[in-house]
């Protein structure tokens, strides 16, 4: 029996990748609706996944700072990732280009 692990990223279209340390798998979540009715994404966790072992979750989306988490994955009627490692990603900062405006400068803000 597989297990369903729901997450709710914003934006909903974010790419969510879960890599299990000992299960030997890496999964990409797919769009799904939680039984409560909330839209999100779901990982379908293989049945043979060892209980409470390490896993890493990476969530990325265009123009967003990635979220990079690690924890232990509990599988069962309620499947969840107990997070204890919080990695801050490096933001790619793009400052607005400066343009001429008479005798002064202005920022060309997208």
């Amino acid at each position: 029996m597989n297990y369903s692990f729901y997450i709710f990223p914003t934006p909903e279209t974010a790419t969510c990748v879960l890599r299990h340390d000992t299960g030997g798998w890496t999964l990409t979540a797919t769009p799904a609706v939680h039984p409560s009715g909330r839209p999100g994404q779901v990982f379908t966790i293989p049945d043979a996944t060892p209980q409470d072992n390490g896993a890493a979750l990476l969530i990325t989306a265009p123009k967003k700072v990635p979220i990079d988490l690690r924890g232990t994955l509990h599988v069962g009627a309620e499947t969840y990732l107990k997070v204890d490692d919080f990695h801050l990603s490096t933001a790619s900062v793009t400052l607005p280009r400066l343009v001429l405006n008479g005798d002064v400068l202005k920022q060309d803000v997208p």
Binding site: V99, N101, L105, K106, Q107, D108, V109
Partner: peptide, 9 residues
């Protein structure tokens, strides 16, 4: 797109 004032500091 918008132009916002900028002073060199």
């Amino acid at each position: 797109m918008s132009l916002e004032r900028f002073a060199v500091i």
